[in-house]
Nucleic acid binder design. Structure first.
Lengths: 104, 104
DNA sequence: TCAACTCATAAGTATCTGCTTATCTATCGA
DNA sequence: TCGATAGATAAGCAGATACTTATGAGTTGA
């Protein structure tokens, strides 16, 4: 769940597609394959990368495994990006103040 | 400047270090190497990746090239992450509303 | 004008990545 | 109990990546 792991996991378009799909609702590995021209082991490996990056979690149910996103896994990325808020367009720069207020 | 290019560019720890250093102030390629155990061509290649991803810009000054961050290059990432705001901890979820208001 | 300097590019190489097929483990249902 | 199903793991391979050394192109100053 290091920054590098997270960036790397999301750098692959297939894995981003899987993550986006899981954001729409949990699914098992077979369901996730539908529509994607990818083998079962390839999906399994992608899911392992996402899991190790802390971006998805899994729950075995019988012989199925339900996958769902772990949204807090995106937090390190958000934190990393907020470090550059000072350089953002004004609209986003104001975000810092807003978040600071919310913390109080 | 696709999402994939940006994620990929930032997935490398050396390139993130370069970006972070440029966030502290612009610098030329030689200055960026100091402290990093990396050859001059390697740095040049890393800078090319960052440039192609839209994360840094360059300006030639004589025989030096000044590099600086292009903070708006992070925008696609921010947009991508905001798509999952619904899953974020409450503190960040409220961000959407805030940004929406600011746009009006 | 020419040696020194900054940076980019070329070419080569070791390692990493994403994929495949083959196989294994575990669970289910007839 | 046993064939079918879901998923993970192993092994192998082609292409990508990050690095190196060598060299090229442009700029500067003595």
């Amino acid at each position: 769940m290091s920054e590098t792991e997270i960036f790397r996991a999301l750098a692959d378009p297939t894995r981003r597609a899987v993550f986006e799909r899981l954001a729409a609702g949990e699914a098992n590995a077979t369901e996730l394959r539908s529509g994607l021209p990818i083998s079962q082991p390839a999906m399994s490996q992608h899911l392992a990368v996402l899991r190790e990056a802390g971006l998805v979690s899994e729950q075995r149910q019988g012989r199925h495994v339900q996958y769902r996103i772990s949204p807090e896994g995106l937090r390190p990325l958000q934190d990393w990006m907020l470090r550059y808020r000072a350089f953002w367009p004004q609209r986003l720069a104001a975000l810092q103040e807003f978040l600071k207020e919310m913390d109080q």
